[in-house]
Amino acid sequence: MVVMTILTCISYVPDTAAKIGVTADGSGLELGGAKYILNPYDEFAIEEALLQRERHGGRVVALTVGSDAAKEILRTALAMGADSAAIIAATGLDSFGVAANIAAYANAINASLVLLGRQSIDHDSFQMASTVGALLGIPAISVVSKLDIEGDRVRAERDIEGGKEVLEATLPLVVSVQKGINNPRYPKLPEIMKAKSKPIESVEPVAVSPRAAMVRYQVPQLKRANKILGDSDADITEFVRLLHEEAKVI
């Protein structure tokens, strides 16, 4: 049997607690002192890659497309147990550009399983798995909460409105994973130390024209009534009246 190559794609994003502002003219974002972290969903993608390798053998390659500083999260993936890591140093790409780079690399290493997080918490666009799958001409399943692989046959469960879907597919395949699929391991100190000396491959980006541009930013204006009452009986009656008569939602 051929060795399974699992590619796990991870992104480097501002911590959700970061303050994100907009420049005075609305043309750009102010990310100022934001702390950057490994996208929380991508821990599940790394863990799932390691678990599948434990079951089926093969190797796990971690990839990020982004600034040089993103090497930090590749070290985390290596400390968790990835066999190797690569960075495609390119900034200012739109999502399509990132997907095109991921797809090119997946092709180059002949990945049979590409694992991603369900969403990147910066742009929350939920599109990478489908876009990469389409570019590779292979199926993709997103927001997966259970993944069983048997030979080249795959059975997956994904969350949908009001329940879940059970799917069957064959490898090669792109999968984005959801919290709950596994419990990501915490690397121990020796592994963290060992990861520091593992090489990180630098890959030349492929040039693609952007397909969409963010032309303007704004901070959403909260137009909320903001009527905050106490807890007296009269207040509770008034609260119900407001929801019924003013907001007309009950």
Binding site: D122, P210, A212
Partner: peptide, 23 residues
């Protein structure tokens, strides 16, 4: 046909413009 979408957990909104013929 521009679209507005939330980014960064809704902290900001971006106006997105397709640069291609189809969208």
């Amino acid at each position: 046909l521009d679209a507005v979408r939330p980014l960064y957990a809704g902290k900001v909104r971006a106006t997105v413009r397709p640069l291609t013929e189809r969208a």
